[in-house]
Amino acid sequence: MVPQPSTLLSFTHSPSLAPFAISVEEYLTQHPEYDGLAGGAMVFDSEDRLLIVQRAAHDSMPNLWEVPGGACDSTDESILHGVARELFEETGLRVRELRHLVGPGDGHVVFKTGRKGLIICKFTFEVDVESTGVVALDPNEHQNYLWVTEEDCKEYQVEREGNVVRFQFTTAAQQATVLEGFRLRKKANPIGR
């Protein structure tokens, strides 16, 4: 892993996210039922479209779509720092603020990895970034990106420049988290919707 400039991890977070402002080790000590943690970042643009990324054809779950994110590492200062790092590594976007937890039920999704059978707990957060202007994908992880609406996510397709792009989420839990993110966003900003 390449060290990132300290400005990468210069962000604020909502007080409601204090339980995630701890190290991965500390969280796993409190929750021994998990072998690891992962984080996802829901990034919306000024038109309330969500950024989704397509997994690389050579990676696990090839060609499927998800929000940016990945494993929180023991070297991350906190779970929140892990989410900010993953978003930067995968898209080049810098987190300005982590706003709130997003997810079905109590906000976490538990899954078993295919390769090693580890039990991973994933948290997804709505984040505000410095700019949504330029998305720079890491080709080792993702091959394409889209800005999508809630309707696009329900129809599994988006029309861009006269072309229809069809997409499928990595898991049903990923799609449920995405739809919950749109619901929470509308609830927080009901005017004009």
Score class of each variant (00 low, 15 high):
Leu9Val: 14
Leu9Gln: 05
Leu9His: 02
Phe11His: 02
Leu17Gln: 02
Ala18Arg: 07
Pro19Thr: 10
Pro19Gly: 12
Phe20Met: 09
Ala21Tyr: 00
Ala21Ile: 07
Ser23His: 01
Ser23Ile: 09
Val24Gly: 07
Glu25Pro: 04
Glu26Pro: 03
Glu26Met: 15
Glu26Tyr: 01
Leu28Lys: 08
Leu28Glu: 04
Thr29Asn: 10
Thr29Tyr: 02
His31Gln: 12
His31Ser: 12
His31Cys: 09
Pro32Met: 09
Pro32Lys: 13
Pro32Asp: 07
Tyr34Phe: 09
Tyr34Ile: 14
Asp35Trp: 01
Gly36Ala: 11
Leu37Arg: 01
Leu37Met: 15
Gly40Ile: 08
Ala41Trp: 00
Met42Trp: 01
Met42Cys: 15
Met42Gln: 07
Met42Pro: 00
Val43Gly: 03
Val43Asn: 04
Phe44Trp: 00
Asp45Trp: 05
Glu47Tyr: 10
Arg49Thr: 10
Arg49Gly: 10
Arg49Trp: 00
Arg49Ile: 11
Leu50Asn: 05
Leu51Asn: 04
Ile52Met: 06
Ile52Ser: 05
Val53Trp: 00
Val53Gly: 00
Arg55His: 07
Ala56Gly: 12
Ala57Gly: 13
His58Thr: 14
His58Glu: 07
His58Asn: 12
Asp59Glu: 10
Ser60Arg: 05
Ser60Ile: 09
Met61Gln: 11
Met61Gly: 04
Met61Asp: 02
Met61Lys: 11
Pro62Leu: 14
Pro62Ala: 13
Asn63Phe: 00
Asn63Arg: 13
Leu64Arg: 05
Trp65Thr: 05
Trp65Ser: 08
Trp65Lys: 06
Glu66Tyr: 00
Glu66Ser: 13
Val67His: 00
Pro68Cys: 11
Gly69Glu: 02
Gly69Gln: 05
Gly69Thr: 07
Gly70Lys: 06
Gly70His: 00
Gly70Cys: 11
Cys72Thr: 05
Asp73Val: 11
Asp73Gly: 12
Asp73Thr: 11
Ser74Cys: 12
Ser74Asp: 08
Thr75Ala: 15
Thr75Cys: 15
Asp76Trp: 00
Glu77Val: 15
Ser78Glu: 03
Ser78His: 03
His81Thr: 10
Gly82Lys: 06
Ala84Trp: 00
Arg85Gln: 09
Glu86Phe: 03
Glu86Gln: 12
Leu87Cys: 07
Phe88Val: 15
Glu89Lys: 13
Glu90Met: 05
Gly92Tyr: 04
Gly92Gln: 06
Leu93Tyr: 02
Leu93Asn: 01
Arg94Asn: 06
Val95Ile: 12
Arg96Gly: 11
Arg96Gln: 13
Leu98Arg: 08
Arg99Tyr: 02
Arg99Pro: 14
Arg99Val: 14
His100Met: 12
His100Phe: 05
Leu101Glu: 01
Leu101Phe: 01
Val102Tyr: 02
Pro104Tyr: 02
Gly105His: 04
Gly105Glu: 07
Gly105Pro: 03
Asp106Val: 14
His108Ser: 09
His108Lys: 11
His108Ala: 10
Val109Leu: 08
Val109Met: 07
Val110Asn: 08
Val110Ala: 08
Phe111Leu: 12
Lys112Gly: 13
Lys112Pro: 05
Lys112Met: 14
Lys112Thr: 15
Gly114Pro: 09
Gly114Phe: 02
Arg115Val: 10
Arg115Leu: 10
Arg115Lys: 08
Gly117Met: 07
Leu118Val: 10
Ile120Phe: 03
